[in-house]
């Protein structure tokens, strides 16, 4: 999973996005919050979704239990 480094920690972009998702947001909301281009957020969000760290409902993304525990691990 490219959003996860070989040592099991999250890549910097993935870290930034899971931090931003402490409050559930849309893709556009994350882009605005982090001032990132939409392609960057879409691609990383897809990987976080596939890793089971975020869930989506009505185009709003939120951390799963596993995602929340990852946020706590980020220094």
């Amino acid at each position: 999973m490219p959003c996860v480094k070989p040592d099991g920690t999250l890549e910097p972009m993935a870290q930034a996005i899971v931090r931003a998702l402490r409050s559930p947001r849309t893709i556009e909301g994350v882009c605005e919050h982090l001032r990132l281009p939409v392609y960057r957020v879409r691609s990383t969000m897809r990987e976080l979704f596939e890793a089971g760290l975020v869930a989506e409902s009505d185009s709003v993304y939120a951390l799963t239990d596993s995602g929340r525990s990852r946020v706590e691990e980020i220094p």
Partner: peptide, 10 residues
């Protein structure tokens, strides 16, 4: 260089 990207991401 920015990770795995799909055309649809744009």
């Amino acid at each position: 260089t920015h990770g795995t990207i799909r055309l649809e991401d744009f």
